[in-house]
Design a protein around this nucleic acid. Structure first.
Lengths: 212, 212
DNA sequence: TTCGAAGCGGAGCGAATCGCTCCGCTAGTT
DNA sequence: AACTAGCGGAGCGATTCGCTCCGCTTCGAA
């Protein structure tokens, strides 16, 4: 019925998702034991797949970057510049890009990661430029602002807290409130009737991304 | 020159600020030793003022709630409904209200805390109502959305990370980028030309506040 | 049906860190 | 000059960490 290969694949997927969840709830303090327990997998099985804790987190980072790029390309494929940008932001936020923030500084950045990060920056730039040219995005919003926005909205300390406390009854309401907040913020990025004079989009030193 | 009382007062202030900083950087994992070290104070001195770690965090929560209420009252004192609400949000965000999120579920909520939290909710409701009546706030934005917004923007994982890594050179740029993001988001709360049909402000079960 | 081994879960290792206590010593006060 | 309030930090037992190792299960070939 369940071949060994299929079981291993399912376990690996469960481990990665569990790592995301535990990281979101416990931050940098997330322990390997907690991740394995959440995934319903023994610690031994985890360590057969990933030699160290860092290797697991590196894999997680790489998948996160790939997801960023996938969603960005999907957004660019959309004919509507605004819809493309909005779906990109929403896709990144809901995936929980921000959950990796606590470990971003503790793991070694592989060459593959930095390559994908550069590609992702480029895709985002193109999304922004297209929206600007179509006149559907506030002129004072630069790529770094979108990066920051995704990082800021990508985590939900309140929802993580509720889940940790086991208040599953409040989770749907909180999740829905968060979704509304995201749409409100996204809506605020569109050019309004009274745009405030913003600073120029420059500032090259800080790109707003975790990995270099 | 420096009397004992003045030194003690200065130490207490340094401890509270250090606790905020370390909590922001380390989350729930923040240790008492780290807080004392950041404040430049011995652990013994910390424990002379606060019997336990929880007592320190409770004090911190209380001060945070008081700050919330102070800023809300200042906002209500402003004749301009929009400026009042905006300065309230900005004041809460910059104070770092969200830093306490990781410990909010771990400490016991005192009666004094819940009283101040209730008062704060009421003040926020009045700020929102006033803005709605003046027509300077999107009609689909409720109090719970502002609470969520403050929690979401109140933490800056990226800035905390930079500070932790000692990249003080990038800090000004990151801080300025974050300030721009806040103004952009705030600006998006004003009624736009094409308001989307939002859900009703109701949903009573979840108020979006940490303490009950 | 039998049996070798691939792959599983988890007990347990040493090391690190936790919250907290206790005490020698500095420095302000009388 | 004598006193002592208040400081900093070494160190306690307990806990938790990342990780190893091994007995047992269970799949698949003979």
């Amino acid at each position: 019925m369940t071949t060994r290969k299929a079981l291993a694949e399912r376990n690996d997927h469960a481990l990665l998702q569990a790592a995301r969840d535990v990281l979101a709830e416990d931050g940098a303090h997330a322990s390997v034991a907690a991740i394995a327990a959440r995934a319903g997998v023994g610690i031994g099985s985890l360590y057969r797949r990933y030699k160290t804790k860092e290797e697991l987190f590196q894999r997680l980072s790489l998948l996160s970057l790939e997801h960023w790029n996938d969603v960005a390309e999907q957004g660019l494929a959309s004919p509507d510049p605004w819809a493309g940008l909005a779906s990109f932001v929403q896709g990144c936020v809901e995936f929980g890009q921000g959950s990796l923030a606590p470990v971003a500084g503790t793991i070694e950045v592989t060459q593959e990661m930095s390559v994908k990060a550069r590609l992702g920056d480029e895709l985002l730039e193109r999304l922004i430029r297209r929206a600007h040219e179509a006149g559907v995005l506030r002129t004072d919003v630069a790529a770094v602002d979108i990066s920051l926005l995704i990082e800021q909205l990508g985590r939900s300390p309140m929802i993580d807290q509720l889940r940790k406390q086991g208040r599953d009854d409040l989770l749907p309401a909180a999740t829905e409130a968060r979704r509304r907040l995201i749409t409100i913020v996204l809506d605020g990025l569109r050019p309004g009737p009274v745009p405030l004079p913003g600073s120029p989009p420059g500032e090259e030193l800080f790109t707003g991304r975790w990995s270099h």
